[in-house]
Design a protein around this nucleic acid. Structure first.
Length: 278
DNA sequence: AGTCTTGTTCGACT
DNA sequence: CAGTCGAACAAGAC
């Protein structure tokens, strides 16, 4: 599933494909609910003739800055994918939006589960204001993490998945970070010790940086998996220590990795390295 | 055929 | 009221 490292990989691939500087000529969509706050006709009209001036990521959002100071926000949710087609390439199943560019290429948004969302924002700061701190930015300090966690009685994993706390973590990287830090996912957030907060702070940055370096995590071969712009797979699956490895030995202590449902999400951990209580 | 999965939003509960 | 929790969304994988 696209989390921060996967979305960052998509943005880098689009940038490398020289999408910045192109102009959107024509827009088609076929699933009205994927466009937020706007009719499909208004959405197409807002984009046609607009030049893409910059491209960047905030949390799991892809942001296209446009030449009239508006922004196209795209969230891939669980199964959204982008690809760049050459003229004449056929559409495929689950292609839900097309953006014809002035160089003849076509940016295609494909999403088998239709959970992905597109949005036009006049004010990007307001549109993204619900998001918490960017975990690879200088604002993500140990003090910032400690302040947020110490104010909550919530189960730690649920709080880390909350995008208004730390923006960009998802199920894979939360499980990996908690294993790296040696902290049980069901600990209450405000019960972490100073030493545990420091371990978690380092672990979050570490697993995300490694995910980006490996160009994202692609598990299995189904279409629900992550594929970046050129259709290439991420290499980070080999770096995972616990995610979807239940029943296999823990890489650190060789105890069997457990799976449980925490906050309605499949959760993988080592009960020996990550004891229930500190 | 039925269950599970996933990120985010929204409504309900405490 | 604020914080927390769980249902809902959609459709492929198994």
């Amino acid at each position: 599933m696209p989390e921060l490292p996967e979305v960052e990989t998509v943005v880098r691939d689009l940038t490398a494909a020289d999408i910045i500087g192109t102009t959107i000529i024509e827009v088609t969509t076929n699933w009205p609910r994927m466009i937020q706050n706007m009719s499909p006709a208004a959405f197409a009209e807002a984009l046609q003739g607009r030049r893409i001036t910059h491209l960047w990521r905030r949390a799991k959002y892809i942001v296209f800055d446009l030449d009239n100071a508006t922004h196209l926000l795209l969230h891939l949710r669980m199964t959204g994918k982008l690809r760049l087609d050459q003229p004449g390439d056929p559409l495929t199943k689950h292609d839900h939006a097309t953006f014809l560019l002035d160089d003849g290429r076509c940016l295609i948004f494909n999403d088998s589960r239709k959970f992905g969302r597109l949005q036009i924002a006049d004010d990007r700061l307001q549109a993204l204001s619900h998001l918490g701190v960017e975990p690879l930015s200088s604002a993500f300090t140990l003090a910032a993490l400690s302040a947020r966690l110490s104010k909550s009685t919530r189960c730690l994993k649920s709080l880390l998945l909350d995008q208004s706390t730390i923006a960009g973590l998802g199920n894979i990287y939360v499980d990996e970070a908690l294993w790296a830090a040696g902290i049980h996912p069901q600990r209450r957030a405000n019960t972490l010790t100073g030493a545990e907060l420091q371990l978690l702070h380092r672990a979050i940055k570490s697993v995300l940086r490694r995910g980006i370096k490996n160009q994202g995590t692609t598990l299995g071969n189904g279409e629900a998996n992550f594929y970046s712009v050129a259709g290439h797979r991420g290499r980070n699956a080999d770096a995972l220590k616990v995610f979807r490895r239940d029943g296999l030995p823990c890489p650190r202590c060789h105890a069997t990795i457990q799976r449980a449902i925490v906050g309605q999400r499949g959760t993988h951990f080592c009960a020996t390295c990550q004891p229930p209580r500190a």
